[in-house]
Design a protein around this nucleic acid. Sequence first.
DNA 1: CCGATCTACAACCATTTGGTTGTAGAATAG
DNA 2: CTATTCTACAACCAAATGGTTGTAGATCGG
Lengths: 119, 119
Amino acid sequence: MDRLFQAFADATRRDIVRRVTVGEYSVSGLAALYAMSFAAVQKHVAVLERASLVTKEKRGREQIVRANHAGLHKARSLLDEYEVIWRQRTERIADLLAETDPQANEKSAGKAETSEAEA
Amino acid sequence: MDRLFQAFADATRRDIVRRVTVGEYSVSGLAALYAMSFAAVQKHVAVLERASLVTKEKRGREQIVRANHAGLHKARSLLDEYEVIWRQRTERIADLLAETDPQANEKSAGKAETSEAEA
DNA sequence: CCGATCTACAACCATTTGGTTGTAGAATAG
DNA sequence: CTATTCTACAACCAAATGGTTGTAGATCGG
């Protein structure tokens, strides 16, 4: 999980994932697209591979880089979880506000959450 | 963008985001939950703040840490883009396969993509 | 008021990161 | 066959990272 997000924490690597999702590229094909050494691009691909965001397939002397959808899906799933938590929270607050007097209850809710968090 | 994903590339920080999405925590409240120094947790919070994933609000001598939904949403949006690209790709391939002879066309599609990528 | 709690900030450290240049073997093209 | 292309790997470097201990000021509780 650390590796997965770490892999996305670089613009070149995000671009590589985008390109290999759109179409098929060899490592050298990718290297031609960026203003950096071949070895640097190689390293980026290695990071992505290690994070299971891409796979490499040897084709003759070339290595073809392909997107691994499952890796991407994994990251999305985690972020979706946070979204769910967030929605639950906002709904919970909305419910409380709808039930009783806004001012008195907002104060009470704040206290309840704090003591829950510190417990 | 780099910072945003970088911030998620650590388990403690992911956990911090989860907690402050669920409920309200002070920095020291968070620090009590992890087996590391206060200063280390402080650093993690600083990373999250810098990535706009949380906000800090001074309340007396305490700093209350809150989730910033917009930051999270931003990361999700980017990952959604990849999903869209992926879907477009799989649909495009499915269309091609549905139109003509599977074997001959699969080979032709592979070639067309390669030359497009290298152009 | 004073001790306790909370925080900001600094300096340190080992490890990792994102790049570089260099070497050399494998595959390909002419 | 030979020059070119492609790749793996190594060594290097400056900067960043994820932790540590230490100092000191602000706020709080009794």
